[in-house]
Design a protein around this nucleic acid. Structure first.
Lengths: 129, 129
DNA sequence: GTACTCGGTATCTAATTGATACTTTCACTT
DNA sequence: AAGTGAAAGTATCAATTAGATACCGAGTAC
């Protein structure tokens, strides 16, 4: 099977697709997408759902996703203020590949943890630091 | 459609699947996988193929992938020494989801770059920093 | 006026990444 | 015998990035 694209190659330095890959592979992007996949959510909901994210980093993440056209930001003139974030059509197309990775992670997490234990036990028995 | 797994949830703090996701989303992992997908390769070949990676970081990446059971490392007792890295069976199962993401990145890179231009032009016209 | 909510900034510190140079082992060349 | 070269990394230090924590401003309710 040929899965290559004509225009870009992630292995090339300075290739735009690599920058894009970086964004996708960002620590928090997948998690934010996971929260937004069922519809728009406000800042505080995302912050609560993505456990461990700090407001600064969430803001950064959302701003970058907005800049890249993957997420839209809408402010409602209410009090207290309401800001809703949603996936754009482009962002929606990313859901499928991202979900594939997430599902893989959830399905194989146990095996990887096991591999780590084995590896570390092996290293210990050889008295490596 | 229900794409959730019973045991793990990436949104939970300290969930193992999140650690796994981190590894997958690592800056260089996808690129190394891309090189190894057609068969074992030696260190210097990977270093040459993944443009921009430094030896230190490549070593780190490969060690971590080895520890996680995704890549195997084999030393040949030759001179000069030869070390070959290959995907393990577990690593092979990750190829598909990872490739989906890579293909998406290559296909949509142009749109994202366009979105960035638009965003930045907009920001400029509003005289934002 | 005091307190509360929401959606963030500001500031400072800790951890990670990256650039560059160096090391080791053995063979081969001169 | 001394120098050169290749492969697969380490070592060292600087720069970038992420994270913890505290704070801010608008507006309404009390």
């Amino acid at each position: 099977m040929d899965t290559s694209s004509p225009a870009f190659d992630v292995l090339s330095l300075n290739c735009p697709s690599r920058v894009v890959l970086q964004r996708i592979g960002d620590k928090w992007t997948t998690l934010v997408f996971q929260v937004l996949k069922d519809g728009p959510q406000r800042f505080s909901v995302i912050r609560g759902a993505v456990q461990g994210i700090t407001p600064k980093v969430l803001t950064q993440t959302l701003r970058t996703l907005e800049r890249d056209g993957l997420v839209s930001r809408r402010i409602y003139a209410e009090v207290p203020p309401r800001v809703e974030y949603a996936l754009t059509p482009l962002g929606e197309t990313l859901l499928e590949p991202l979900d594939a990775v997430r599902v893989w992670a959830e399905e194989h997490a146990a095996k990887i943890l096991q591999a780590r234990e084995d590896y570390d036990a092996q290293a210990d028995s050889l008295q490596l630091p």
